[in-house]
Write a protein that binds this DNA or RNA. Structure first.
Lengths: 269, 269
DNA sequence: TAGTGGTCTAGACCACCAG
DNA sequence: TGGTGGTCTAGACCACTAG
């Protein structure tokens, strides 16, 4: 139902829908000048479903109700539900399979590992990454961490240090910082290779997008030691902030990558 | 009209449409095993319009016929045309403006410059790039160029060397190779800052996507001289192959970028 | 065979823009 | 005021999957 004031609508939904839109617009637009703040119905359905995903009403991999059921429940037409589901699918939050149903996207399956991992082998090979954690501890957030993660002065973070291998070849060293408040007890957990599926399954946090800033740097003594190459070797530094469904920054990751035998793949559209 | 065998359809298009689909499917599926090769109508409309864009029937910035006109011409419903137009818009080939019309996307306007230029200043600044060509000449394609651009052994290329400035700061040196056959006379033209709008306007070639492979390297003597820094300085190397609407590789660009004051921005979704 | 998503249509109305 | 794209609906049929 998209609004607390009424339940599912039978067939006369059209007229009430427009009242709903206007009332919604009135709320959104109140206090604003000329903008009307029109908000399409399918957008409201999108937000409603997004909220349920953020609240982990449906778990990753789980099937959603059918289009018809959602339409009946929300009091809109099937076409409107479809438009919202298509948008969520385009945002990689759902997966639709003809003849089977609509499912919550799962970061765990083979193909979607590479959604957030852009390092690929130059030649052949699957490029599947593996990881080895070298340190994990809770600490007060540094100034950098507070800035990246939008944290208060007294906030604490859990800091994970690990190295990663691509096709069994050592090439990444990284430090991952997450707010301790959002990931209680994460320092005591055995960490899997794909952290983002752990975030979803264990802490109800779904990574929606990530921003990466890349630079070329010369390796310092410490990183050079971890990656077992000479100090001063050129390396790719990736500064990533990952954002969840509610657009909160929830992870900062600083990676240092050797690119002798791998590269960072970026597709421009 | 999606098929040469008939012209615009009046109202009874539905049944003939399905015949069309089946015949299309039959052609596509002939010789194949189990796959039916079903091709939705809106996909055929998409391909028809894509062909017209590739053939430069409509110029960049120009307005297309309205949805209703296209629907009538092609003998399909307006909703089907809309779905095709929406897909072309999602692929950044069209721009739709409510109340005005649908236009061919233009690489020249301010915001879409950054679609294929991912280097951004670390701090403030517009990050607008400028260029200075240092050399341009036609030559036989090297082995690398033949590989990247899928050229025959005897093919020739035009090679452009230039440096680029971001916010008036020297930070990129690059070599651009294009097949001489596709860009006749380009070596004699005054080159603009945004090459891709020149490709479209002058040679009828629209860049649809580009693949970039990034590595960290140490600058050699030559690049260091061009960029006015010390030899061995770490730099970001971007190896880009740009592809046109017909999915032909039409440009290879090898860029070397200083990243002291800028970074490469990559948004993961 | 039943149920799901995918496609297509026809028609209504709304938001936006320009003359 | 007329034309454009944007939204929404209702209903039909198709393709795919599973029991």
């Amino acid at each position: 139902m998209l609004d607390t004031s009424f339940d599912a609508l039978p067939a006369g939904g059209a007229q009430r829908r427009h009242e709903m839109e206007r009332s919604g617009a009135g709320q959104a637009g109140s206090g604003r000048g000329g903008a009307v703040g029109f908000r399409p119905l399918y957008r409201q359905v999108y937000d409603t479903l997004l909220k349920r995903l953020a609240d982990a009403v449906w778990q990753p991999g789980q099937i959603l109700p059918s289009e018809g059921q959602l339409a009946a429940e929300l009091g809109v037409s099937q076409g409107t539900v479809r438009k919202a589901l298509d948008a969520l699918t385009a945002d990689s939050l759902l997966v639709r399979r003809q003849g089977r149903g609509t499912f919550v996207a799962d970061h765990d399956d083979k193909q979607s590992v590479f959604r957030f991992f852009k390092l690929r082998p130059d030649g052949d090979g699957t490029g599947m990454p593996t990881s080895r954690v070298t340190a994990i501890a809770e600490a007060p957030a540094s100034a950098d961490e507070r800035g990246r993660l939008d944290l208060a002065r007294a906030a604490r973070v859990v800091r994970i240090e690990r190295v990663r291998l691509v096709d069994a070849r050592l090439c990444v060293s990284e430090t991952i910082s997450v707010p301790a408040s959002l990931f209680p007890g994460i320092a005591q957990i055995e960490l899997p290779n794909t952290l983002y599926s752990l975030y979803a399954a264990r802490f109800g946090i779904t990574i929606a997008t990530a921003n990466e800033r890349l630079k070329a740097v010369a390796l310092g003594a410490r990183e050079a030691g971890l990656l077992e190459v000479a100090e001063g070797t050129p390396a790719l530094e990736i500064d990533r902030v990952a954002v969840d469904l509610e657009e909160r920054p929830v992870e900062w990751r600083l990676s240092t990558c050797l690119t002798q035998e791998i590269h960072y793949l970026s597709v421009l559209r």
